[in-house]
Design a protein around this nucleic acid. Structure first.
Lengths: 168, 168
DNA sequence: TGTGAAAACTCAAGGTG
DNA sequence: CACCTTGAGTTTTCACA
């Protein structure tokens, strides 16, 4: 990973479309971005090989499956050492309630997005699973009132019109 | 959305696989979950129609596209009224740096996950875009050291073995 | 649940700036 | 020289019985 790989405007158009809807047939995608189907396919494969596209995933609505309550849990762990942090992260990942984990620098050490069935479940998760651990300090939680997932990641800065010209 | 729709163990197996990899051919998926291809396809369509599967999306790695710095921004807005909240949410959604937005109850009003190119970009985003708004109070931010997206949403509670039909 | 037509993907070779 | 296009072979999808 030499950091940023050059992506041109067509690559970004492809990313934009596939982030919105990964079920787009390659032919339709090719039309949208103004490419021949096989060239388009080649671009997509390249984006996957470069690690720009990490995968294609179905998104499941928690509330449609009985997980009607979401929360963000803020946790501090002590001591803040690598083994303790790694073990806690591992523990979080193993919990079915966990949706995503942010190990952050700042007031909190971890921000954990969870989905639970109800407030009883939330309390059980916080008290029995998190607070009971010896490394946990300063446990606070926020109920999610509304969540917006922004699908499309957009180009950060000036993007070349086409592909890169190899130089040097 | 009358809350939970009945999902049996096969539905959950399908959800599990498609959350991990949405590019699975229907035939392969059918084999994995032990169904005929056409039945499997029917299940998937049903899950989409029920709103359990909200969509299929490509996931892009921000760091591979030059957005090497991620942060979680905590914001309070005043007054905490519907119009102000809605306008601020709308504003956040329009920012290219925004990845996801959590409107929460608790210490903060909003938790915003953002991706930026570097610390200069982060400072510009925080100072020029967020802090400059009149409704914003109590702006704090945490740099993301590590992020773990948990792909698979798992069944919340006791799931029926099949839907109908009893196995011998 | 199984089958078949229609459509998609993949890989090759050829053309163009 | 890299990239895009065209075209055939194969696999997959999806409606119908």
């Amino acid at each position: 990973m030499s950091g940023t790989t050059e992506l041109d405007s067509v690559d970004w158009r492809i990313l934009e479309e596939l982030q919105n809807d990964a079920t787009l047939p390659n032919r339709t995608l090719a039309e949208l971005v103004g490419l021949a189907p096989s060239s388009c396919l080649q671009r997509v494969r390249r984006l996957r090989e470069l690690g720009v596209i990490t995968g294609f995933h179905a998104v499941v609505d928690p509330s449609a499956t009985g997980l009607s309550l979401e929360a963000v849990v803020s946790v501090n762990v002590r001591p803040h050492t690598r083994p303790v942090v790694a073990a806690f992260r591992q523990f979080l990942m193993a919990q079915p309630e966990t949706r995503s984990i942010f190990h952050v620098s700042g007031q909190a050490d971890f921000l954990v997005h969870i989905a639970v069935t109800d407030s009883t479940h939330l309390r059980a998760f916080l008290m029995d699973k998190i607070a009971s651990r010896t490394e946990v300090r300063n446990l606070t939680s926020s109920v999610v009132l509304e969540r917006v997932e922004t699908r499309a990641l957009t180009p950060p800065t000036g993007v070349k019109a086409r592909r890169r010209r190899v130089e040097s």
